[in-house]
Amino acid sequence: MEVRTIKVFTTVDNINLHTQVVDMSMTYGQQFGPTYLDGADVTKIKPHNSHEGKTFYVLPNDDTLRVEAFEYYHTTDPSFLGRYMSALNHTKKWKYPQVNGLTSIKWADNNCYLATALLTLQQIELKFNPPALQDAYYRARAGEAANFCALILAYCNKTVGELGDVRETMSYLFQHANLDSCKRVLNVVCKTCGQQQTTLKGVEAVMYMGTLSYEQFKKGVQIPCTCGKQATKYLVQQESPFVMMSAPPAQYELKHGTFTCASEYTGNYQCGHYKHITSKETLYCIDGALLTKSSEYKGPITDVFYKENSYTTTIK
């Protein structure tokens, strides 16, 4: 009895394709271990004539594949690729409408935090270190965002349907971005203890939790000093293409032309909904596939993004 075979390709990165001759009487799992086709788990399936010449994702289970996976995804987590594939199996079914010149995501599976993050990423200057993220990001900007969303979920250790947080998501993504040249110098002034300067680099240099107003941050924000008295913390120097200011959701007025974009969060910790506000020729609110415009805006804002380049204080 002759062994019926077909020729397929296996890959971990969709760049390096490895030619395989597979036995049609055995499952993919018996031949390769966990195997995925377009995100779908085909591990328990036997090869079919229609699979001839198709590319299958496999887990990096030998040295060659491990090197290829690390170079593309910059992670050695053995569960990463499987999590990416199972997320992709959902995100490829989502709709990605162009809204006001940006790629958004039609609401499904509690994905409003991903839509808000995706919209924000198209408006701030950011370059990702893992080629996987950078490639998928370019495709997302062009309207094909399924891979990018699935990668975000995998890097953030999230599953489809789980509630997510924009600030946490951005923080994970910033860790995989090139923020080497970003720098922030802060000064804390206390009447009792004097003053202390701190220099922050990388992710810490672009994120701040405690106030939404970048102007206020430049002037000074009140913080408790270690001595128990009130101290003032203010920005001395900022070198970065953008800054992200966050605070627990509270009524906040966004003035046209003073910011790049913002995240609105309605609801409580267990259950809520994100919308995205962007400042173009007027203010726009993007909620999944829905767009509304207004000249002014007041609502429960939790993150505001500002364009920056270089700032030095005039406070002496």
Rank of each mutant, 00 (worst) to 15 (best):
G143Q: 00
Q251H: 15
L186F: 12
E253F: 12
L151R: 04
Q98E: 11
I223E: 10
E2N: 12
G143C: 05
Q123I: 04
D303H: 00
M209C: 09
I105C: 07
Y208D: 05
G288K: 08
Q237N: 08
I124V: 01
A150N: 02
F305L: 01
D180K: 10
V189W: 07
R167K: 03
A69K: 06
Y137S: 05
F242Q: 00
F259Q: 05
D109W: 04
C193S: 04
Y36Q: 08
V236L: 09
H74P: 01
K293S: 13
K46L: 14
A177P: 00
P97G: 02
D13I: 09
N178V: 06
K92H: 03
M209D: 05
A136W: 05
L121E: 04
G299R: 06
E162R: 02
Y96S: 04
K233S: 11
T313I: 12
K219T: 10
L283C: 08
S25Q: 10
V243A: 02
G202K: 03
T19Y: 10
E281H: 02
V221L: 13
H51M: 07
Y137R: 04
T5W: 12
Q195F: 08
C112S: 01
M24Y: 06
E162L: 04
V221C: 07
K7A: 13
A140S: 06
T199G: 04
F32Y: 07
E253Q: 09
K229M: 11
Q98N: 14
I301H: 07
R4G: 12
A250C: 14
Q251T: 15
T103R: 03
P130R: 04
L114G: 03
I301F: 01
P130D: 02
F128K: 02
T10R: 12
L179H: 07
Q238R: 01
C112D: 05
A231Q: 02
N178M: 05
R184T: 05
N309S: 13
V203P: 14
P241I: 01
K275N: 06
E71M: 01
W107V: 06
K44M: 11
H74N: 05
P249L: 01
V58I: 11
N268Y: 15
L290K: 14
M244Y: 04
T120E: 05
L153D: 02
T10M: 11
V185P: 02
T282E: 11
I105S: 01
R141W: 08
